[in-house]
C-alpha cells in the first residue's frame, strides 16, 4: 500500500511538473482517524499531502462535472465507472481528464469498526498486511481487515480500473466466486406486502437531509426534482409517503447509471441501506437490457436509446 502511495506521488509530481494537467484531485489525510479528505493539488509542492490507503473511501468523480480546466483524478475501479458515466452523459470530456487509475483491494467501513469498539475513541488507525491497527489513549487493537470492508467492496467485480491513462502499480487479483445479488434475490422472493414493509422500515429512518444526493457522482442536475415547486412533484415533509416517493424517484433516476460505488450509503447519517434497492435496479437493467453501467465510454446507456427489439411486454 505504501509502495503504491509512493508511486502515486511520483507520477502526480511528473504530471504537474510537465504541466500535463492543471490540477490533481486526490486524497489527503483526514483530521480524524479512519478518514481521508479529498484534496485538490495545483502545485508540485503540495504533492506530499497526497495519500493512498484503505480509508480513501470518497468517490472523487463527484468533483468532475462543470470543470473547465484539465484535471487528473485518482480513481479506484468503481470511481472510474462513475467517470465513464459522466463522460457518456457529457458532463466532462474524455480529453479533459487524466485518469490516474489505482487498483484497490477494498475500503474499510469505519462504521463497522466504530460499532465494534463502542465508545472508545480511536486516535490512530493504520492498515497493513490485512490487519487494521487501532490505537487510542489507553488501548490498542488489531482487527482483521476482511471483516470490516464496505459491503459494496465485498462484491466488487472491478477492483482494477477498466479505463485509465495511467495505472499505479500492479493489478490486484479480482475477487472470485462473489454472489452480488444474494440480497436482491432474497428481496425478490418476498411477497409484495413483505417487500412494502421492508421498504417502509428502511426508509422510516430517513430525515431528508439529501446527503445521498450530494454524495452521488451522478446527481449533478442543477435543479433537482425535490427542489422544484412548479409543479411540486413531491412534498417536503418527512412523512412516509413523501420520503417513499423521494427514495423511489432517486432509484429510478440512477437506473442503468448506478455503478454501486456505495457513496450514498457511506454519506447517509441514518445508516439507510441505499444499496439494497439500487442493486435490484441494477439487476433488472442487466437482465432486461444486458447492460452494466460505466464499462465503456462509447456505449450508449439503455435509457438513452431505444431499439425495436427492446422488451415491450410490460406495456399492458
Amino acid at each position: 500500500m505504501q509502495k503504491r502511495e509512493k508511486l502515486l506521488k511520483e507520477e502526480v509530481k511528473k504530471l504537474l511538473d510537465k504541466k500535463q494537467v492543471d490540477m490533481v484531485i486526490g486524497y489527503e489525510k483526514g483530521t480524524l482517524a479512519l478518514r481521508t479528505t479529498p484534496c485538490f493539488l495545483a502545485s508540485v509542492d503540495d504533492v506530499d499531502r497526497l495519500v493512498w490507503n484503505e480509508f480513501c473511501e470518497n468517490n472523487l468523480a463527484k468533483y468532475l462535472p462543470g470543470r473547465k480546466e484539465k484535471v487528473a483524478i485518482v480513481a479506484k475501479g468503481c470511481d472510474v465507472r462513475s467517470i465513464v458515466g459522466l463522460i457518456q452523459e457529457r458532463q466532462i470530456t474524455r480529453e479533459q481528464i487524466f485518469i490516474v487509475g489505482i487498483p484497490c483491494e477494498g475500503i474499510i467501513d469505519r462504521r463497522k469498526i466504530e460499532s465494534r469498539l463502542g465508545e472508545k475513541e480511536i486516535l490512530e488507525a493504520t492498515c497493513e498486511n490485512g490487519k487494521i491497527l487501532l490505537r487510542g489513549e489507553d488501548f490498542q487493537e488489531i482487527l482483521k481487515k476482511g471483516d470490516f470492508l464496505y459491503d459494496s467492496c465485498k462484491v466488487c467485480k472491478y477492483r482494477n480500473p477498466i479505463v485509465f491513462d495511467l495505472l499505479i502499480g500492479d493489478r490486484v487479483p479480482e475477487l472470485e466466486k462473489i454472489d452480488e445479488y444474494a440480497e436482491v434475490r432474497k428481496f425478490e422472493a418476498e411477497s409484495p406486502d413483505e417487500r412494502w414493509l421492508h421498504f417502509q422500515k428502511e426508509i422510516s429512518k430517513c430525515i431528508r437531509c439529501y446527503a445521498c444526493r450530494s454524495a452521488c457522482p451522478l446527481c449533478y442536475c442543477e435543479q433537482c426534482f425535490v427542489d422544484q415547486s412548479q409543479p411540486r412533484w413531491i412534498g417536503i415533509t418527512d412523512n412516509p409517503s413523501d420520503v417513499g416517493v423521494f427514495h423511489l424517484f432517486r432509484v429510478f433516476h440512477v437506473a442503468g447509471r448506478c455503478v454501486d460505488c456505495g457513496a450514498c450509503s457511506r454519506a447517509c447519517p441514518m445508516n439507510i441501506d441505499h444499496r439494497w434497492l439500487l442493486k435490484k435496479m441494477e439487476k433488472d437493467v442487466k437482465e432486461l437490457f444486458g447492460y452494466e453501467a460505466g464499462l465503456s465510454v462509447e456505449e450508449v446507456p439503455p435509457l438513452a436509446t431505444f431499439k425495436e427489439e427492446d422488451p415491450q411486454d410490460f406495456i399492458k
Binding site: E89, R90, Q91, Y220, C221, E222, V300, A304, T305
Partner: peptide, 8 residues
C-alpha cells in the same frame, strides 16, 4: 446542461 439525452 448539454447532456445530449434529447439528441440520442
Amino acid at each position: 446542461i448539454g447532456c445530449g439525452l434529447c439528441e440520442s
